[in-house]
Design a protein around this nucleic acid. Structure first.
Lengths: 222, 222
DNA sequence: ATTTACAAACCAAGCGCTTGCTTGGTAACG
DNA sequence: CGTTACCAAGCAAGCGCTTGGTTTGTAAAT
């Protein structure tokens, strides 16, 4: 915790966005009890799955009794929902900033891919994995609630893809292209391990762009 | 159950393969008690998730008492493993046939994509979804066992992708390309509904090929 | 500066229910 | 006549969550 940011431009921006969201009460401060609990919950839900994670596991991870959890959240499911909602809020803000920083369509797409890869494989990775793979564990009411937030996020992608299509740089249907990218990018969480292998996030982004026919030939990454 | 096959060539082949596997005891006959149980298990595991599905749910689905399940399988996890193992066996055989039917590399890739889409969204769809998304619920011992079977399956893909790369038709790294395709294709299970919308499996395959820069421009699919 | 007030945060205990699985016995079948 | 397939009943363990009471932090009142 608290390691210095290595990536200058993007990370400064990122933490600025983060601070603003905390101030507006849209995401919890990781230093607060609630924030720590949600972070631990994300890790546990990702590693063991929501159903296999007991409230006793969760309580032990933050160092309190299991019953004390229900002072902060009314039900276990409310914890899952909170993890998802806060993750979407944070990532929508980050992605919006990423796409606005660029002007060319291809650069916007690259920025989106790069940003989503970082969401999935970076600090918010646990929570993102929960968001993708623990969908069924939410009640239907919570599902529609979370879905509404996701629509904003998806619009960012569709806008960029539509521009690319109009410019003749994309052959496939924009909705299908987005869905393919959703699957491909979220799947990276199961295999992409940046520490070993030497493939950086930028390198991975290059590979994906190459697969889509952008940015010329890319050599072997390792 | 027992509806006539509509797709002539492929489906005949498909059921021939199926019958051969049943004869060799590599997959269970869907008419047998074990086969019916595995089919129901796949549906339930997919719809509710493995953990949320109780042995009582499972027993009720096949019309027996919950305790009677343990005459056929020693543990609940063994049921999950059996679903996965039999699904991989069937699909490996189907994919092998699909790739051998073609000669050109691009056609082989198209056949693989088409076959995997059918595995995911067709009759074995429930079981495939379980295979992809219930991974964590397997014990580690079972995981390595299932993983070994998957390697054969993956080799089919890598061989074709390597050929395409050598022929200069693929820019990205073959391992990364396969992983992207894995994610993109398995994700279709969450959104592709062939009955409504009019997008056929062949149409979807075209779109994916177009996204990869093959087969010229594809128009809007709907 | 000390007291008083009060809510937020937490603990210890355990309730009611569901879970995967076992057991002992019975019917069906070749 | 034994093997296979099942039922009826229930056990031990674990589950999410509740309850009643104690500590802790904060800030106004004395």
């Amino acid at each position: 915790m608290g390691q210095p940011s290595l990536q200058l431009d993007i990370h400064v921006k990122h933490s600025d966005i983060f601070q603003a969201l905390i101030k507006d009460q849209l995401v919890s401060d990781p230093a607060s009890a609630r924030g720590r609990l949600l972070a631990e919950a994300a890790t546990l839900f990702r590693d063991k799955g929501y159903e296999r994670t007991t409230v006793r596991d969760l309580a032990a991870a933050v160092g309190i009794q299991s019953g004390s959890l229900f002072h902060h959240f009314r039900t276990k499911e409310e914890i899952l929902k909170a993890v998802m909602v806060e993750t979407i809020r944070l990532n929508t803000a980050v992605m919006q900033a990423a796409v606005e920083r660029e002007t060319e369509s291809e650069a916007k797409l690259r920025a989106l891919i790069r940003a989503e890869l970082e969401s999935i494989n970076g600090k918010t990775g646990e929570a993102m994995a929960v968001l993708v793979y623990e969908w069924r564990s939410l009640s239907e009411a919570s599902q529609t609630e979370v879905l509404a937030l996701r629509d904003v996020y998806e619009e960012l992608w569709l806008t960029v893809l539509k521009r690319l299509k109009n410019e003749g740089q994309l052959n496939a249907d924009v909705f299908i292209a987005r869905r393919m990218l959703t699957g491909a990018l979220s799947w990276t969480v199961t295999w992409y391990k940046p520490e070993r292998g030497g493939l950086t996030l930028d390198g991975l982004t290059d590979q994906i762009m190459a697969l889509l026919g952008f940015g010329g030939a890319a050599g072997a990454p390792e």
